[in-house]
């Protein structure tokens, strides 16, 4: 085996950034499971789309952590981007900015209804949007730090 990239010290910053993104994804996953399975709040369609984007990150990101592999960012980016847009749409629906007729949740559970509110603004869709935003930002910085450190080396 040839050593292709002798990893410089700055590289561990990349590891930490991706690791923190994983912590966000895992906490988001467990919190959403807590609300749906333990508190038994109903899960609307839009929540499911966001879950589809969020849950795989819990398993895929660690594969890029051991050993650190910058390609993982490329692999998870479609999920993060789709999840971010689904969350944004959900926030707009919950805030009433998207009309009832434009939302896909007709049967059973309306997406516009929020069951949980922290500090007056932090409902579940907002938490989801924040989570996806943090994950996207962390992964973006990972990429940035990585390309800086490799061009220096």
């Amino acid at each position: 085996m040839t050593k292709q990239h002798p990893l410089p010290m700055t590289d561990n910053r990349c590891w930490y950034l991706t690791f923190i993104a994983w912590v966000f994804a895992t906490c988001g996953t467990l919190i959403s499971l807590f609300f749906s399975e333990i508190v038994q709040l109903p899960v609307c369609v839009l929540c499911w789309y966001q879950r589809i984007a969020l849950y795989p990150l819990v398993l895929i990101l660690p594969l890029g952590l051991f050993p650190f592999d910058i390609k993982v960012i490329r692999y998870v980016s479609p999920l993060v981007i789709l999840g971010w847009f689904a969350a944004l749409f959900h926030v707009l629906v919950a805030a009433g900015l998207v009309p009832e007729s434009a939302q896909p949740c007709v049967q059973g559970i309306p997406c516009s209804e929020t069951h949980f509110n922290l500090f007056g603004f932090l409902n579940i869709p907002v938490m989801s949007l924040l989570t996806f935003t943090f994950i996207a930002a962390l992964l973006y910085f990972t990429k940035k730090v990585f390309s800086q450190s490799t061009t220096k080396a």
């Binding site: 561990n12 590891w15 690791f19 807590f34 333990i38 660690p62 051991f66």
Partner: peptide, 26 residues
């Protein structure tokens, strides 16, 4: 090292989750 950080944080999150579930149910 990175591995032990990962394992301890994962364990910490798991413990918090189990504690939250137990507290809620009680």
């Amino acid at each position: 090292n990175n591995k032990s950080i990962f394992i301890s944080v994962a364990a910490f999150i798991a413990v918090i989750f189990i504690a939250a579930v137990a507290m809620y149910q009680s």
